[in-house]
């Protein structure tokens, strides 16, 4: 079971969180004309990365905040966690 540092609550076990997928996906702006391909990429197409991955988790049974977690998908190492609006260098 992963041990995830919630930027608000501290170290918590994985079972308090729910997974939210790739954090680098940006929703297209509302009312913006976009191609089918762009929309498909947003809704469906995801890379299944091996290695460092920035992903979303929600601290569901805690503060309910969506956070960003930088995790190695192969080793499960967590390098860093960020608040939703935090700048990631």
């Amino acid at each position: 079971m992963l041990h995830i540092k919630c930027p608000y609550c501290g170290m918590r076990s994985q079972n308090e969180f729910s997974y939210g997928g790739d954090a680098s996906v940006k929703r297209p702006e509302l009312n913006k004309e976009i191609s089918d391909e762009e929309w498909d990429n947003f809704v469906y197409n995801r890379k299944s990365l091996r290695g460092k991955h920035l992903e979303l988790w929600q601290h569901l049974s805690g503060c309910r905040q969506w956070i960003k977690v930088e995790r190695d998908t192969a080793t499960h190492e967590i390098f860093n966690t960020y608040k939703a609006d935090e700048e990631i260098s």
Binding site: G20, R64, Q65, A84
Partner: peptide, 13 residues
């Protein structure tokens, strides 16, 4: 609820 929180926190803060 999670759906609304997702949009409020991540998409349209």
């Amino acid at each position: 609820l999670s759906h609304l929180e997702y949009y409020l926190q991540l998409v349209w803060p």
